[in-house]
């Protein structure tokens, strides 16, 4: 089986089991403040590193190109409280513009 099939099926299975386990385990097990804090921080660390890696790397090199323009435009749009569709559209349009110049 290809890597992509493995990634598709196994991550789907694990993510479903994580959801399901929430309904099956006793609440006291995970209801500790440190667990709650770490749980709210893990998405922040992962999402932020995903932003950086997806916008600024190619293979194993740090590269600055048109994607950074799209990301900066997205950040400006978000800081002006633009909604999701507008922000994505502006990011795509500005990045494509620089790419096609």
């Amino acid at each position: 089986m290809s890597q992509i099939w493995i990634a598709t099926l196994i991550s789907s299975l694990i993510c479903f089991l994580l959801k399901y386990l929430g309904y099956r385990i006793p609440e006291s097990l995970l209801n500790r403040p440190a667990i709650q804090r770490i749980n709210s921080l893990i998405p922040i660390a992962l999402l932020s590193s995903l932003v950086a890696v997806q916008a600024l790397t190619i293979k194993q090199q740090v590269v600055i190109d048109h994607r950074l323009v799209g990301l900066l435009v997205a950040a400006i749009a978000l800081s002006f409280k633009a909604n999701f569709p507008i922000m994505m559209l502006l990011a795509a349009a500005s990045s494509a513009l620089v790419y096609n110049l």
Binding site: P43, I44, L47, S48, L50, V51, Q54, A55, H66, R67, V69, G70, L71, A74, A75, L78, F84, M87, M88, A91, A92, A93, S94, S95, A96, L97, Y99, N100
Partner: peptide, 19 residues
């Protein structure tokens, strides 16, 4: 995909979730 800005959509999507 890059000609349509799709490669910038992914980091922008993550940024939108992070913000």
């Amino acid at each position: 995909p890059a000609a349509w800005g799709l490669d910038a959509v992914v980091p922008a999507a993550f940024l939108g979730l992070l913000w």
